[in-house]
Design a protein around this nucleic acid. Structure first.
Length: 278
DNA sequence: CTCACATGTTAAG
DNA sequence: TTAACCTGTGAGC
C-alpha cells in the first residue's frame, strides 16, 4: 500500500475529516500512550505528506509524524453511528463524534515539534506530488551519479515518494533499463520520468491504487482478459516475473538490487538503444 | 495450519 | 550485506 500517493491521499482524508476539530487521541495498544495523552482533546489543524512521511498538525506547534513502513495502515472512517472498540493492535486512534481513524503497524509514530518536522522534510528530495517540488534538485543528483537509475529513484533523498511499484512502472513506460547509471540519462529522459511520475502518482492519489497501463495496452485493446494485480491496479511489470510483457510478449525479468526486487522487460527496456530504435 | 513474502527503513555486523 | 521490526495475505501441505 504505502508509496507516496497513499500518504498524500491519507493527508487529504485526515484534513477533510478531522481538520479544525478537537479530537480524542488515544493509543489502545499502548506504545503511543504518553504522547496521545498530551494531545487528547487538542485541535487538529490539518495533515500534510512529504514523500512517504505524514505529519498531522495539532495546535501548539505539535505534529504527529507517521511513517507506515512496509506494513502500516491508517484507516479513516467517517459517517459512523458509533465509534467501535479497537480491533487488533491500534497504535494511534483519532476520534470525534461520527468519525475515527486507526493506525496499525507503522514504523514511526512520534510526537514532534515544528522544527523536528522541518528537519525531516529538509532531508527529503523533491516530491512529484507537491506543488513546491523542484525536479532540478533531483536531476542534479541523478546526472552526477554512477548509481543505477533504479536505485536513485528509490533513494528518498534524491526524490521523495517513489516506491518499488512506481519505480518499476515508470521505467517501463519510459523504456529505460533500471540498471542504467544515472549519469548516462539525457535530460529529456529525466524530464519524461518526472512528468510521468507527476501524472501517475496524482492519479494514484485520486483512485487509491496504482494503475499504469496506457489505454492502447489495456486488456480490452490487447484482447486479454481484464485483471487486477496484487496491489489493486493494473501494471506492466511489477511482480509479473516470468509472465508475458503486455507490449512485446517477452518474459518479464526480475533481479534483486539493494535488497529490493527489480522488474523489467529486457526487450522494451534495452540497456543500449540503437539510433534506429529512437 | 505454517510458511514465505511484501508497495520500507534503520541499525548492526 | 544482513537482520530486525511491525502486520496481512496468499500459497502450499
Amino acid at each position: 500500500m504505502p508509496e507516496g500517493h497513499t500518504l498524500h491521499r491519507l493527508a487529504g482524508e485526515i484534513t477533510a475529516v478531522f481538520g479544525g476539530s478537537r479530537v480524542r487521541v488515544g493509543s489502545p495498544q499502548g506504545r503511543f500512550a504518553e504522547s496521545a495523552a498530551q494531545l487528547d482533546g487538542a485541535l487538529l489543524v490539518d495533515a500534510e505528506a512529504w514523500g512517504k512521511q505524514l505529519f498531522i498538525r495539532f495546535e501548539g506547534d505539535r505534529f504527529v509524524h507517521v511513517h507506515l513502513g512496509l506494513y502500516g495502515t491508517f484507516d479513516v472512517r467517517d459517517g459512523v453511528a458509533e465509534i467501535p472498540l479497537p480491533v487488533g493492535q491500534v497504535r494511534l486512534r483519532l476520534a470525534r463524534p461520527g468519525a475515527y481513524a486507526d493506525l496499525r503497524g507503522a514504523t514511526t509514530c512520534a510526537l514532534v515539534t515544528g522544527a523536528e518536522r522541518a528537519a525531516v522534510a529538509a532531508k527529503a528530495g523533491p516530491d512529484p506530488l507537491r506543488e513546491d517540488a523542484d525536479p532540478e534538485r533531483a536531476w542534479a543528483r541523478v546526472s552526477r551519479s554512477s548509481a543505477p537509475i533504479g536505485t536513485l529513484l528509490m533513494d528518498q533523498t534524491v526524490l521523495a515518494g517513489v516506491g518499488n511499484v512506481y519505480r518499476a512502472e515508470v521505467l517501463f513506460r519510459q523504456r529505460i533499463h533500471p540498471l542504467r547509471p544515472g549519469r548516462t540519462l539525457r535530460r529529456t529522459q529525466w524530464s519524461a520520468i518526472w512528468d510521468d511520475l507527476v501524472v501517475l502518482m496524482a492519479q494514484g492519489v485520486r483512485t487509491g491504487r496504482i494503475d499504469t497501463v496506457r489505454p492502447e495496452h489495456t486488456p480490452e485493446a490487447m484482447g486479454r482478459a481484464p485483471r487486477v494485480d496484487d496491489h489493486g491496479g493494473e501494471v506492466y511489470v511489477y511482480r509479473r516475473t516470468g509472465q508475458a510483457c503486455h507490449v512485446c510478449g517477452s518474459k518479464v525479468r526480475t533481479e534483486v538490487l539493494g535488497g529490493r526486487n527489480l522488474f523489467w522487460c529486457a526487450r522494451c527496456q534495452p540497456v543500449f538503444r540503437s539510433r534506429a530504435a529512437r
